[in-house]
Design a protein around this nucleic acid. Sequence first.
DNA 1: CCGATTTGGGAAAGCCCTTTCCCACACTAA
DNA 2: TTAGTGTGGGAAAGGGCTTTCCCAAATCGG
Lengths: 395, 395
Amino acid sequence: MTDAKSPGPNRAGQSAGPVAHDVTKADAKTKASSGQPARRARDGKRRQDADISRVTLQDVADRAGVSLTTASRVLSNGPRRVGRQLVHRVNQAVAELGYTANLQARAVATGQSNMVGVVVHDISDPYFSSIAAGLIDVADRQRLLVCLSSTAAGEAGEREYVALMRSQRARAVILIGSRTDDQAKLADLRHEIHAFSSSGGRAVCIGQDLLGVDSILPENAAGAESLGKALVVQGHRRFAVLAGPRGLLTARDRLTGFLAGLAAWSVSVDPRYIVHGSFSRDGGYEAMSTVLAMGGPRPDCVFAATDVMAVGALARLRAEGISVPRDIGLAGFDDLPTLRDVYPPLTTVRLPLARMGEMAARLVLAEASADRPRVVPVPGEVILRDSTLRLPPTR
Amino acid sequence: MTDAKSPGPNRAGQSAGPVAHDVTKADAKTKASSGQPARRARDGKRRQDADISRVTLQDVADRAGVSLTTASRVLSNGPRRVGRQLVHRVNQAVAELGYTANLQARAVATGQSNMVGVVVHDISDPYFSSIAAGLIDVADRQRLLVCLSSTAAGEAGEREYVALMRSQRARAVILIGSRTDDQAKLADLRHEIHAFSSSGGRAVCIGQDLLGVDSILPENAAGAESLGKALVVQGHRRFAVLAGPRGLLTARDRLTGFLAGLAAWSVSVDPRYIVHGSFSRDGGYEAMSTVLAMGGPRPDCVFAATDVMAVGALARLRAEGISVPRDIGLAGFDDLPTLRDVYPPLTTVRLPLARMGEMAARLVLAEASADRPRVVPVPGEVILRDSTLRLPPTR
DNA sequence: CCGATTTGGGAAAGCCCTTTCCCACACTAA
DNA sequence: TTAGTGTGGGAAAGGGCTTTCCCAAATCGG
């Protein structure tokens, strides 16, 4: 068994013999003519790094017998034209040496990069990965370099990553997910974003419009409100809510929106039946447990603030032998594609997650908004499925 | 009603006025003394970019009244020590100017970066996002910059991304997912990876050991074999296999492993009941359709090459009114956390996905393997759940 | 008190590119 | 002929950082 833990034998010269067009540096130099002391010194130093061969533009220029300038002009497609002959010679040299431009150096020289930082709370959460997928799709196509960070840590982690992106002189940063109501941390984050923006970067936020930057704004409250109304129309009256984490704004919006929807039909919720829990399968499971443990009449419908929580709740109900929807209704939020096949099919509010990611990417590419940040509202669509079906009492 | 769909009231001066330590460039310059023509020219050029203020190390040095060298030494924690006084002055200047080192420039100067490129087929697929989560978790902790690309395109896209990473002088590249048996494309990819490695980068592969680099290797064949045996033991005899895409090696391994497992108990599968389809929900759905459309006796157990396919198959069966496991058994592979609550609970082979990501990250950080690439096998664990339960024929 | 070491500071040479200038050399138009 | 206008090439000045090298001052053993 090849166990990586083992100390490992001595490092031998593994350098895997030269491939077809893998001309060595030495070879290139014999053909090149110039022998400035500067280059000699460099090569001397290079020797230390054993077989690591870094080909530079100078090497290409030497081999093609042109100046560095010309080589650069051929490779970076600027406005300046170069004669056919030389273009060909340069390209040939590039191929022969296996040269690739050093993008870092180019970024330093031009002062612009094509890196985009993306911050999600947890990439393994399908909510985020769906958004990220849309984002990456567009970004890849536009030859942007997407850097991803998973910051379960919250605002602190986000702040830190934005700072990192500023250091990287990234072109843009996209924050996905909800913020909490912690004003101090929020201020920190805003400050960092401000610094990022004023150093020339673009910032986009998906989820909330409170960072003072362009935002993609899912209509959590409105969506939840519509859902609430729809559930009342379906005949449900006694509700429980598995709200998200206390203080998380998305959770709050969905809760208040939902309650407003019920209130529109004069239905209210016993505050004890509003249970907070994390936006996760386990959070839903536990919150559901809490609800079940409570005395009093069992609610006839449960609203989980996210589909993922709903799945947890479903598991808990199943464990208890409570049937959905026969014994109790269950609704979620997000309409995650991954969960579209759970049984029974979940009533939920659909958000076009991949689209939201795409929109964010496009917002990044668009010109920075002139005076005030752009805010793109994204409506949610209530999808009624079996999980809240009101079955005839006869059966 | 908090409807975000409405045009929304005017967003007042949200821009959070200048914060305490937000000293402007101009301010800094009045205090600085030196006025070399070089710097003047630079500032003159800078003016064009309106308010975009890029603070450089030189600015910091000027403000602190030290040399560029000293400032650099304070910030890049090299071996060289600097006096307490100056350290303090520099740090103060950094804070006042809100300076952040330009990591690109640093990378150019030092010749090393901390970027790690990660290639997945589709980040919204929970298989990949689970692995990525583990990976990013470790990488973030080690202050590596994770860049992600979703290349549904296959080897071509992978090759391109590896090339990009070489251009970026990334420290490592991690390829996640299976390759096909297209030898030409594979050779291209290997060649590109070789170029990447010999320019000093590390390469790690998760899924297969055919790129000649360090690999995390899930034991697909062995896992599927065990599963096959277990299912026979459970009493199943007539199998159908929803294999993955033709030519995809992971799919092939799982298929052959499974068949081998059955063969160990002298059970064979009618080749017509081996249906290929994409590694996706829809792929499973369609493959299941094909199986159902076939005449002849219905199989009593279906093995889907991935959990995601199994979910698709389950949906298809449900649509047909066929009950799992009463009428037919169903097994998957991967044991995706996201799908652990589907009903009925899926028999499957568990792969420690997040762990695999972590292992890959650690492999990247470890020294390059001495002579031959390291290969870390990852065993799969058969998990028998209700979906293949053999119910007593009486009921 | 003196040569021998540390210390700690800075000038300048790199790192690998891009871009600005400047120049030589055709051509055209008058 | 005399500008006038492109063209296409290269030297050199950046871009923002690290690191080498050199030197002055401080410390130290005897």
